[in-house]
Write a protein that binds this DNA or RNA. Structure first.
Lengths: 210, 210
DNA sequence: GTCTATACATGGATAGAC
DNA sequence: GTCTATCCATGTATAGAC
């Protein structure tokens, strides 16, 4: 059946990206991972470009769907932090971020792959942005932050951290801890008393002009 | 002359990584970029692995050296921010971050490349860590931050942002702006009056336990 | 839709002349 | 140290039988 094979190839592409990296992801390696004949890559997708582009979209949609509902019910920075840790652990194990890292690296010099990868990443970014917008609007920090930009920064940074983890797991863990410490710090500002908040705001308004 | 050819190959490897990406970086493409014979890759370096590892180290040392002195004279978060912007613009143009992105992606599934890439990144991290340690020690934020972890987070995030920029330049610019806004915010806390600082500290001490 | 076979390009690596 | 030539593996893609 066609749908079965197409699906197998999409999944095969994703596992190959994780296990072999973009440099060794080929029609043959994908077909082997999918357990199907190599020629079927071209029958179903026409070219490697198209298969990788489709796999990127497929993988991102599949994964983002797992969190959409839950993210919608998050209201505070502290809640977001806790759930973010959970998501991060799950997606790390699933290889989602590793896939994005490999595709992003490949897309740098591969015009056909770039828009597809951007679209895949965008699926994540949209969700992050929605939560951040909601959470920051209810915070004294809202006035000084840009959820649209921050969502993109968060997504890109996670990819960078995942790649870093591949060559220095200890360093990456230390980096994640430091960032979380920073986020906890921001969450603490949320709960500052009104006098202190006013003082902080006043100072920020004077300085944060750019 | 041997030193000349070795150097040419190292430089050729770096430009090839930027222009073609890790997936299409080969002994032939590097030799072409270097303007030397393909067989010389193996005469001088033995294998592609070794050449890439050497190129990574070579490139990082060369680039980091440009900033070491200047970074040593930076004393405040605001100064660091301004100089960081300058460094970022220069290194982006030189392709330094793009190279690290490609090597990191390749290293994920390439045991021999991983330690070399980690070492190259570490050269940058060490410098960032030194400045951050100095700057944060003089700041009320010092008590709540970990320069070692932050330096790693900064380096990894920049790689992620660079990769993201390759597929969505507008989004990446927005992300960088948002992060800079955040950094300016942190710099503002540095200059808070003593009363407000005490209030912030008090609150943070109570919350930032992890 | 799927398989075998195959053409044709590219890449890693070595041998041996210069 | 450098060049030519070459071997062999891997990769993209297509043709044609089933």
């Amino acid at each position: 059946m066609s749908a079965g094979t197409k699906e197998k190839l999409l999944e095969g592409a994703l596992t190959t990206l994780v296990e072999q990296g973009i440099a060794k992801t080929s029609a043959r390696s994908i077909a082997a991972a999918a357990g199907v004949n190599q020629a079927l890559v071209f029958y179903h997708f026409g070219s490697m470009d198209e298969l990788l582009a489709a796999a990127c979209r497929h993988g991102a949609e599949q994964r983002v769907a797992r969190y959409r509902d839950r993210l919608q019910r998050i209201g505070t920075l502290a809640e977001l932090l806790e759930f973010g840790r959970e998501m991060h652990a799950q997606e790390r194990q699933a290889g989602t971020v590793a896939i994005l890292g490999q595709l992003l690296a490949g897309a740098q010099t591969h015009p056909r792959l770039a828009p597809a990868t951007a679209a895949g990443l965008e699926l994540w970014i949209v969700e992050i942005e929605k939560v951040l917008t909601r959470v920051l609007a209810a915070s004294p920090l809202g006035e000084f932050t840009d959820p649209t930009g921050l969502a993109r920064a968060v997504a890109a940074s996670f990819v960078g951290l995942e790649l870093y983890e591949g060559v220095d797991p200890g360093g990456a863990e230390r980096a994640l801890d430091a960032l979380e410490q920073l986020a906890v710090l921001a969450a603490a500002v949320d709960e500052l008393g009104p006098v202190a908040q006013r003082a902080v705001r006043h100072r920020l308004r004077r300085t944060a002009r750019r």
